[in-house]
Write a protein that binds this DNA or RNA. Sequence first.
DNA 1: CCTGAAACCTGTCTGC
DNA 2: TGCAGACAGGTTTCAG
Length: 280
Amino acid sequence: MPESPEVETIARNLREGTAGCFAIPGLTISGYKSYWQKTLAEPTTELLDQLLPGQVVKEVKRRGKYLVLTLSRHTVLIHLRMSGDLLTCVDDFDPGLKHIRFELEFLEGGRLLFNDPRKFGRIWVVEDTQTILGKLGPEPLDESFTSEEFFNLLRNKKRIIKSLLLDQSSIAGLGNIYTDESLHLAGIHPLTISKNLKYQTSKRLLESIRQVLNDGIERNGSSIDWVYRGGEYQNNFRVYGRTGQACNVCGTIIERIVVGQRGTHLCPKCQVLYKSREKD
DNA sequence: CCTGAAACCTGTCTGC
DNA sequence: TGCAGACAGGTTTCAG
C-alpha cells in the first residue's frame, strides 16, 4: 500500500486521531505483542521487553516511506512495505483483521495494531535513526530541495528515469503509483535516460512530482483492492492501472510495459521516448 | 556504476 | 469447481 501520501495520511491519523481512531502522542507504552518474528527487525524481543515499557510517545512523523514515532528515549521506525497498515483500537475490541503481526499496548488503554498480510513490513526500535534514515535521499516536498539540485541528481547519473525515481537513496517517498503518475504529468517516457533530460524538463518533472504527491495527500492516499482504506486518489489516476483505457489528455490507449521488474503505465503519445540528449 | 533476477509473503483475479 | 499462473503499493542481495 504505502508510498509517501499513504504514510503521511497514516501519520496524520495517529497524530491527530480520526473517527474511530485515537491519537497516540502523550500516551505511555506499557508493552507489546509480536505475532510474526521477522516483523521486529531490531532489537531482539528480550531487549525490547526492557527498553519499551514506560516510554511516552512524543511525536509522530514521516520520512520517506517510514513512519517515525519519537519516544522519550528511543524511536520506533515502521516501514509498511507492500501491504502493511496501522490503526489504533480500544481494548477488547476485535477489528476483524486477520493479519496482525505486532502491536503496542498503552498504559492508558488501547493498542496500536500493525496489520500486514504479506509480512514484508518491518519495525525497528533504535536510539539513532540515522543508521536507517540517513540512507534516504531528499524529500521532494521539502521546499529547500531545489530544481537545480534535482537536475544535478539526474545529470550525474546514467539511469532509466523510472528506476531512479523509485530508488529511495536518490529521492525519498515515491513508489510505483506516484512515479508513473508523475512521469505522465510531466510528459516523460519511463525509459528515458536521466542524464538526457535538459534542465527545463527536469524542473517540470519535479513540479509534477510535487503536484501528484500533494494531490495524493489531499485525497488521503490511494486505496486499491483490499489493501488500505479511506483513500480517494485512485479515482484520479492518469495512467496507473488504466491499461487499455483512453488517456484523459489525448485519448490514446494507455500501455503497460515492465521497467525494473515493475509494471509501468504510460501514454505512448504524451510520453515519447527520446534516445539522445534533449536540445537546450 | 547500472541492470536484471530472485527472494521475502499472502491474497486476488483470470483463463482453461 | 479446481487449478495454474500472473500480478500486487517495496526492498535487499547477488550475478553479470
